[in-house]
């Protein structure tokens, strides 16, 4: 198997995720796009681990999964809080930092 196949797949997923983060209005959908980015990273980690014959790739992928779980938990809690305060989860409406 070619290492590059996996890396390019990761790159495609990453860029799709970036597009989702930038273009989506709904807060939950933005979080889903972040999951795509994290999975792209994980594919890279495991592929490099297999390529270099080191277990560290898998170990770090597992850490990333654990951190992703924490991120989704806190992220969804924030989305819920926004929804409760504004009756909407449209992230384009949240512009309190407007100069």
């Amino acid at each position: 198997m070619m290492l590059n196949n996996f890396l390019l797949l990761g790159a495609v997923l990453f860029c799709t995720g970036v597009y989702g983060v930038l273009a989506r209005k709904n807060g939950v959908l933005v979080l889903m796009a972040v999951e795509l980015i994290l999975n792209a990273v994980n594919i890279n980690l495991v592929a490099f681990g297999a390529f270099n014959h080191t277990i560290a790739g898998q170990v770090f992928a597992l850490f990333v999964i654990a951190i992703a779980a924490a991120e989704v938990g806190v992220g969804l809690a924030i989305v819920l809080l926004i929804y409760r305060n504004r009756r909407s989860i449209d992230v384009t409406e949240i512009d309190l930092m407007k100069g």
Binding site: V21, L22, A23, V91, T92, I94, D95, L96, M97, K98, G99
Partner: peptide, 10 residues
């Protein structure tokens, strides 16, 4: 500069 500061994180 102010117009750049839209406050929109995306």
């Amino acid at each position: 500069l102010r117009t750049i500061q839209t406050g929109r994180v995306q």
